[in-house]
Write a protein that binds this DNA or RNA. Structure first.
Length: 115
DNA sequence: CCATTGACTTAAG
DNA sequence: CCTTAAGCCAATG
């Protein structure tokens, strides 16, 4: 152990990354759903913050995480504002007016679909 | 150390 | 439909 990163540093964030990686292709979920699955539904803000920090992690499909209305609230934080929508459309997810069409059908709830 | 902000959500008016 | 307010908690100034 040379650098010894803080062991506790990977509590909430790491779990968020894990769940996010498990989102199936062509499906989406919400910050609240992830937060709820991890225990605190009201910590959805932290999920958003985790996504912000997830930029350094290539395996985390942050574009599959939207808010509870299917709105692409985090699109501003991508390389370009239209990148998020583009990535979604690339997975056959239709986006209209920054909102995921059929969001409620494409919605992937970790606490229900993930065991 | 205190204040503000934010990729959120829910409730109330 | 729009505005406040509250709850949550890390990061930033």
């Amino acid at each position: 152990m040379i650098k010894s990163l803080n062991d506790k540093n990977k509590d909430f964030f790491e779990q968020v990354y894990d769940v996010t990686r498990l989102i199936p292709y062509g499906r989406v979920t919400s910050y609240g759903a992830i937060a709820s699955y991890l225990g605190s539904k009201k910590s959805s803000r932290m999920v958003g913050w985790a996504m912000n920090a997830a930029h350094r992690i290539p395996d985390v499909p942050a574009h599959r995480v939207v808010n509870r209305n299917g709105l692409l609230t985090g699109k501003m934080h991508f390389e370009s504002p239209d990148q998020m929508q583009r990535l979604l459309e690339m997975e056959n997810i239709e986006v209209k007016g920054d909102v995921v069409v059929n969001f409620k059908i494409l919605f992937w709830d970790p606490s229900k679909e993930l065991i």
